[in-house]
């Protein structure tokens, strides 16, 4: 009897901790895109959630509707009956990420670049405007009668580990984070990446080296867009997203859950995005699993506020986040 109780406790823990890590990884990916843009351009991109959502929609247009975003012809990779194979699906995801990167670059060029030199506050407000505009577009797109499935090849498959059901999607989330942070790690050591870090540190000195700051901004937005798309797609996986489909519920989560992550980790810290994502994701899952017995007076769904409570706690002690840069560098 005792053994049985322990076994269930272990199973519960295994289920919770794997789910916590997976959700943490997803948050980290979403936050990373935001951090890259902020670090390079000093712009708080409030449209990140909207861009992410658009990215997931682009993916659904390809795998669910067998089409191409913005283009009138069909998608030869998808036949509408069977799910696409893993390789095809990844190829399509890469295309969706590229299109989202393009969207982010266009937004930067059209709405942000002309405003360079204006107070950063004004720029942040402009991104809010972009967010509202994209959200309207996203809402119209999502509110079609058929659910916009993302046709994840692994669906809801799971492994049974220590008595717990561990979804394949958990592993995918971890791989997505490993890929994102790995790519950023190597990019930051490349010629363009070094230029981007130079721009982040001292824009004028970077210009004096002949670095084209506008181009660096555009690349930062492109990377931010691609990561936003990836984050939104993996967040739509079961059991996180409903049935592995894009839904309008996804959007507010993407827009607001990344906030405690980056504030916890620091707006301009890549490490902070990873640690912040893991802490916030874990806190949310573990609080939902283990505190519910004691906090029933708070009602259902209270775990959603746990990240914000942590965020407030960190802000009190370290206003610039755990890994953020304390001083304001710009003159």
């Amino acid at each position: 009897m005792l053994f049985f109780a322990q076994a269930t406790a272990l199973a519960t823990f295994t289920g919770a901790i794997t789910r916590a890590i997976a959700l943490g990884c997803i948050y980290a990916v979403v936050a990373l895109g935001f951090v890259i843009v902020f670090k390079a351009t000093q712009v708080l991109n409030f449209a990140h959630g909207g861009i992410a959502m658009a990215g997931a929609l682009f993916m659904s247009i390809m795998v669910n509707d067998a089409g191409f975003p913005f283009l009138p012809f069909g998608n030869p990779f998808v036949n509408g009956e069977d799910r696409p194979g893993v390789m095809v699906w990844i190829l399509l995801l890469a295309i969706a990420m590229a299109i989202t990167a393009g969207l982010a670059m266009v937004l930067e060029r059209v709405a942000i670049r002309p405003m360079v030199g204006q107070p950063l506050f004004s720029l942040a407000i402009i991104t809010l405007g972009i967010e509202v505009a994209i959200s309207a577009f996203n809402r119209d797109a999502v509110n079609t009668p058929n659910a916009r499935s993302l046709e994840f090849p692994w669906g809801t498959n799971f492994w049974e580990i220590l008595g717990a059901n561990v979804n394949h999607s958990y592993l995918v989330a971890v791989l997505a984070a490993a890929f994102s942070f790995g790519v950023v790690f190597f990019f930051y050591r490349s010629r363009l990446g070094v230029a981007m870090r130079a721009v982040a540190f001292d824009q004028e000195a970077a210009m004096a080296q002949g670095i084209n700051v506008g181009r660096v901004f555009q690349i930062a937005w492109a990377i931010g867009g691609a990561l936003a798309c990836l984050g939104a797609v993996v967040y739509s996986m079961a059991p996180f997203g409903p049935q592995g489909a894009v839904s309008s519920d996804l959007h507010p989560v993407l827009a607001f859950r990344a906030l405690p992550v980056i504030i916890l980790g620091g707006l301009d810290s890549v490490t902070g995005a990873l640690i912040g994502g893991l802490v916030i994701g874990s806190a949310e899952v573990l609080a939902g699993q283990y505190l519910s017995g004691y906090t029933s007076f708070l009602g259902v769904g209270y775990q959603a506020i746990v990240p914000y409570v942590i965020m407030l706690g960190v802000l009190l002690v370290r206003p610039y986040g755990l890994f953020g840069t304390p001083e304001i560098r710009r003159v």
């Binding site: 130079a198 982040a200 000195a205």
Partner: peptide
């Protein structure tokens, strides 16, 4: 530039690499 303006978060090699950007 006046005040040196080295990129403090970059290594010596990386600083030099920015100078060779063009």
């Amino acid at each position: 530039m006046e005040g040196r303006r080295c990129f403090g978060e970059l290594t010596v090699d990386e600083n030099l690499a920015t100078g060779a950007f063009t």
